[in-house]
Design a binder for these strands. Sequence first.
DNA 1: GTGAAAGCGCTAACAA
DNA 2: TTGTTAGCGCTTTCAC
Lengths: 341, 341
Amino acid sequence: MSTDATPPRRSRRRSGAVTLHDVAKLAGVAPITASRALNHPKQVSAEVRQKVSDAVSRTGYVPNLLAGGLASTRSRLVAALVPSISGPVFLATVQALTETLAEHGYQMMLGQSGYTNTREDALLEAIIGRRPDGIVLTGIMHSAEGRRRLMASGIPVVETWDLTPTPIDMLVGFSHVDVGHAVARFLRDKGRTRLAAVSGDDERALRRLEAYRAAALALGLAEVQAVVVPAPTTLRSGRDALAQLLERGVDAVFCSSDQLALGVMTEAQARGIAIPQRLSVVGFGDLEIAADLNPALTTVRINGADIGRQAARFIIDRAEGREVAQRIVDIGYSIVDRHSA
Amino acid sequence: MSTDATPPRRSRRRSGAVTLHDVAKLAGVAPITASRALNHPKQVSAEVRQKVSDAVSRTGYVPNLLAGGLASTRSRLVAALVPSISGPVFLATVQALTETLAEHGYQMMLGQSGYTNTREDALLEAIIGRRPDGIVLTGIMHSAEGRRRLMASGIPVVETWDLTPTPIDMLVGFSHVDVGHAVARFLRDKGRTRLAAVSGDDERALRRLEAYRAAALALGLAEVQAVVVPAPTTLRSGRDALAQLLERGVDAVFCSSDQLALGVMTEAQARGIAIPQRLSVVGFGDLEIAADLNPALTTVRINGADIGRQAARFIIDRAEGREVAQRIVDIGYSIVDRHSA
DNA sequence: GTGAAAGCGCTAACAA
DNA sequence: TTGTTAGCGCTTTCAC
């Protein structure tokens, strides 16, 4: 039963770029051999390796990673979700993450969720749809819906910058409660008795504040005077906050960011209040500028780059099929005692 | 129920996720109809729309954008290449870019090239391989090889933060030469005669420095005293640089970043040198902190967010098939005259 | 408005 | 070591 009608020619417009097929033809091998020459060079002969390599440079071939990812279910993409990159807090983490991933042939996708959780959901869909080999969250995911979707996706997830006994998957962080306690003790040891705080209103900073407050109470100090300012924190809000606190007769201020601390110090300087003689100031973050301010800023140091590197390692290990034994890493913190306290 | 179709001979491990096929089956339509219901809702009946939407929420379907991108040759990914995100200069640009793209359903991929051009090439390959709908460069691409590859890729490219008569494709920036001239005139108008500069050693900053130097000469002022420090610039290098400059008897300092300016001001304060009475300080970047320093910092303001938004618009326009009439946009600059000069 | 067929460019699985 | 085959999950083209 033969029909004489030729089968309809349905030509799709091809992207026009050089494909692996072209390279293979030029090298005189099958496409899969060319693929192997590029991705698993040890599996092919030196001769093939050379011919393919020549063909690549002659054609200017650039592998289509979309196609590769689809076929291999490994996208070599990792997504990072940050509240905002304009806050310098997570910068070191994102930078170390990007670098470490790049060294291993992975690319980083960046999503900003904003400090509210409203956009997080749409973003999550866009991210999961890209089938990344891993997702790194700065902070822990709180929305039940978000957690559910992430777990359902089956994609390795690393939560960072916080500690929880029930992470979605893997975790690299430190205890904000411990930090709050430690700073209160630190200031008590410096002889301060009327502690104050300026805190951004994000969840982790507030957790530090509550711990600080509780510790001060437990240490028999006066009740903590606190000013909460909207995130992201700025030098300006630090200045304004100190103005309020001074009326309440405080002798030490714990700031939830180095920016706030810089604001507090700027305002103190403008008013002729000597630091640390009349007022102790402690920051959080240990920005690069902290050490070189005058006086040098005493601050809580978190190794953000370490967090990024460890997160990258977690993801890469999983992507390469290695099981990670220890899923929770407490990166710790330290108080860098300079001259402002 | 009898056993259904025998498993395929060569079963590849399927990712296991819900596919459009599953959704279509559940909704009782063909896959292509389900696809249309999701991507071009107007092309299908309300009934189909509803059935598909139900099926999606019942299955938790998340479209595979890798597959979609491969089939449609539109990845909805945009790559941004920055020297380093730790420098806050490009932060506003990256943030605005990410946001604007997200609003239009595009995702951003971030690559850090480092301040040297060595890694740029490998990065470029990884990026082009992902077939993004656009590439945004902070700075202009100088390496001939890089330019060639970008042009050959056929991907829309936006260069930013600089001006050149020969962009690869599109351009959003401003003239660093104009900035250098303008600052020299500005300081002359303030009555300063012995101009100095502290500059990071990146290419754009040096271009501003040379223009500043030339303008001072043309204005009949003393030769500019300059200290060049390695990028990224820090508060510390600003402090050290001022120490050197003071020995040469200068009365105004143009800094290539606000961080350097903060360092200069910190050092001046530590030495009891009154600003602006004895020394004028001008920064570059107008960081958030600039306005609230004491004294408030006079600085060159670049609208980095505008650059990011405009770049995003360029890319999106191209991706949606609109031709952009004006391929070069000069975003300009302004000198924000506060109290430090 | 809906559907069947045919790939997008690549790699896993199997075979020689 | 190399090749053949059959998809990965989606959208384009063409047909009704």
